[in-house]
Design a protein around this nucleic acid. Structure first.
Lengths: 190, 190
DNA sequence: CCTGTGATGACACTTGGTGCCGTCAAGCTA
DNA sequence: TAGCTTGACGGCACCAAGTGTCATCACAGG
């Protein structure tokens, strides 16, 4: 038998989100989270650099998925088509079974400026990864940055629709929908 | 004669930036900043909610300038034209005499993730203000969000060029230049 | 059986940030 | 002149985030 219960990281995440939902983000101390998870404060900060970071665990792999999907798109694909393919590729991370959990996390994040700030950092990394991947395909600036910005907006909009209370549609579907709406809107700007 | 030296807030900002440049952001404590400014820690947190916030003092009025300039644009102006006018309107806040100071601040901010995170929050507020002002003009979503996103990118690019070491051109000029480059790039995305 | 390794506990410590109260110049009013 | 209020700051105690450091002990490999 193991000296400690397994899945310490996952236990911390669950304990944190449940505590945050019950009593609010800044009413919960790290010590209380770790107590709930049967661990200590020091262990929490071995798994997460921050108190906030516990709510964004695994978010970093999204950048990798996006970058790989953009790189894997056919050479003939336009920047927008490459981004559309990348949005499709993230369906693995946004399966229907994850939606309820995503709603919980989103509820906590939406309620606190500190957390929305961290969310912005994650999205900025996502956009940077997309822009890098596009430049790797030979898309010049500022087109690469612009496409990444539009992709980020499509991602954000799609995610919002995906976690919306009544929604049952897949993430890829609503995200691609948001993307094509944005592409159409580019005609009405000038 | 006054009981205390005037301009406490400004003294704090100057003391902070100079200290950060000399020894790095996280090697400097708030107590050291306030000591340098001849004040106390408590007073620092009366003027700034955060240690980071001291580097972004006055940034919030930018949102107001943008919103007012967009609202003041002629009814016939397209979203992009309204944003171009807003970029021009910020020249007051980005005069040539502020450039050297902006370079110092930018040097500090660029070197620390915590500070770039706060910068992202400020830019997000800017984009939100722009999108709101555009919607107020009757621009529907997602065109308003998209235009705000492009405006934010133009602002960021323009600012980067404005503070670039060799640059001597005005902020409005380089920002409008960045904006028109982005508008041209929209044609190459589809 | 021995030894290294990796994950955790335990504890002290620094620092950001807040609550609360005291102090005193300036300004207003009578 | 006297009295009162207001605003800005000092001082102090306190909490919680985050870090450095060492000890502990199951487990894997030889």
């Amino acid at each position: 038998m193991s000296r400690w219960e397994p899945n310490a990281r996952e236990r911390l995440v669950r304990a944190a989100v449940e505590s945050f939902l019950e009593r609010g983000y800044d009413e919960v101390t790290v010590a209380e989270i770790t107590e709930r998870a049967g661990l200590t404060k020091r262990t929490f900060f071995r798994h997460f650099t921050d108190k906030r970071e516990v709510l964004f665990a695994g978010q970093d792999i999204l950048s990798r998925i996006f970058a790989e999907a953009i790189a894997a798109a056919p050479t003939s694909a336009t920047p927008i088509e490459a981004i559309s393919a990348a949005l499709t590729a993230t369906e693995t991370a946004f399966g229907p079974d994850h939606r309820e959990w995503a709603r919980k996390v989103q509820t906590v994040v939406a309620g606190h400026t500190d957390l929305r700030e961290r969310e912005l950092l994650k999205k900025a990394k996502l956009r940077a990864a997309m822009a890098d991947a596009l430049r790797e395909r030979g898309v010049p600036d500022p087109a690469a940055s612009l496409a990444a910005e539009i992709g980020g907006l499509a991602f954000t909009t799609g995610f919002a629709r995906w976690v919306a209370p009544a929604n049952e549609r897949d993430f890829g579907e609503v995200a691609r929908e948001a993307l094509s709406e944005l592409v159409e809107a580019t005609a009405k700007l000038g």
